[in-house]
Nucleic acid binder design. Structure first.
Lengths: 218, 218
DNA sequence: GTAGTATTCGAACGAACGTTCGATAACTAA
DNA sequence: TTAGTTATCGAACGTTCGTTCGAATACTAC
């Protein structure tokens, strides 16, 4: 057991650089399809040099996933603190936060979504725990909404995971030049989740009026 | 250029067996993570023997994806022929057909969804064409619904791809012992897509009454 | 049986893989 | 300047990869 290596700031910075390059490579080729040599080439570090910063290829994936999840969760907590108490408003904020982070960190989030099964113990467990925490957060928001509106027939688990499906599938099709940006996408998906396609009945901006409640509620 | 090999029925059958085994291996380990040796072992064919049936590992993936997509599309066309003309009923049937096939062919559908980027030309193009055809089908169904209901604010592309997101994400979480079966899942997701979480306001079986129209429409 | 085709596979190929080693260079603290 | 740590990398290790080859076996038609 060696004592923790003392690292200069530049070293931490270089690790971040390597992680950014690895993210891009995993994004392009997938975890299994990518080679350490690809990452060395892109980061302009020698093959052996990478192993000064990281113990294995798997640790690279682990660090990328852990960082992405941790940052996303932190941003969510920060946003929800400033939010109102209406379940709908809070859920809309959750969706917007998720999508903004998702599109701002497209590469990392694809690696997080697509390589969910690529880590093995002990790395897998730690990321899985973060995922559970994030899921629990979303589930509670939907539970609150369900309770407020008396939605007794709603399967919360299916609803939440369907919402995640809509949001996480985006990396397979979203084209920044063609498709709506994060905010507009969030309104769209929140509208679908809350009111279905009918949410778009009257006008494109109907969602603004529905921000504080269900416009069709009696 | 050799003439097409004449194959006995048993040979075609054995190819199917190999494809089934390959599907399982790709399902478990991913395309890049799986080795030809894994597939040989599972199918009880020697490593070299596999190459009598297939020219490359990539062709295995191609055949799996092509078969899954073709069968799915055929089943959809068959179902839609018997369907009524109501846009909602047709869309509900689409969702149910997709999910039934998805859960019945869980392994192949994960391979189809998860390995969408693993094929390279010329294989990639042919599968992409099937995907486009399938997407177009879904898009038309939603367009019909949109027109019937005057949903001018609905971004059809986003709506359809969100629907695909809900459905295709299922392979990441669905647990046959715990979660609803295909039909129940289809009702749930159709409810979400058509009316949002509000679709579950009154009772679990409210969807039955809404089969022929929107229960909340004025 | 015999000829010819269809099927099977042990053994090996070269390439690429993740990782390690030992030496060297760069930096820091005295 | 020196001693000690931090950082870097060329070269190689052993393994696994997808694929091929040539010989052997099973089958079919005559």
């Amino acid at each position: 057991m060696a004592t923790a290596v003392q690292r200069r700031p530049a070293t931490t910075q270089k690790l971040d650089h390597i992680l950014a390059c690895a993210t891009r490579v995993f994004y392009d080729k997938g975890y299994e399809g990518a080679s350490i040599r690809d990452i060395a080439q892109r980061s302009r570090v020698s093959l052996a040099g990478l192993y000064y910063y990281v113990e294995s290829k798997e640790e690279l994936l682990y660090l990328i996933q852990k960082h992405a999840f941790t940052t996303l969760i932190a941003r969510l907590e920060e946003q929800l603190e400033r939010a109102g108490t209406s379940p709908e408003a809070r859920l809309r904020l959750f969706i917007r936060t998720h999508l903004e982070y998702f599109l701002q960190n497209r590469e990392a989030m694809k690696v997080l979504s697509h390589e969910a099964e690529s880590l093995r113990p002990p790395f897998a467990g730690e990321v899985a725990e973060l995922k559970r925490a994030y899921y629990r957060r979303a589930r509670n928001l939907v539970e609150d909404l369900k309770q407020e509106r008396g939605l007794k027939g709603l399967n919360t688990r299916v609803a939440v995971l369907s919402l995640f499906g809509m949001m996480n599938w985006i990396y397979t099709w979203h084209n920044p030049g063609r498709d709506p940006n994060a905010d507009a996408l969030a309104e769209h998906i929140a509208g679908l989740f809350l009111d279905g396609v009918g949410a778009a009945t009257n006008s494109t901006h109907r969602h603004k009026a529905s921000r504080n409640g269900r416009p069709r509620a009696g």
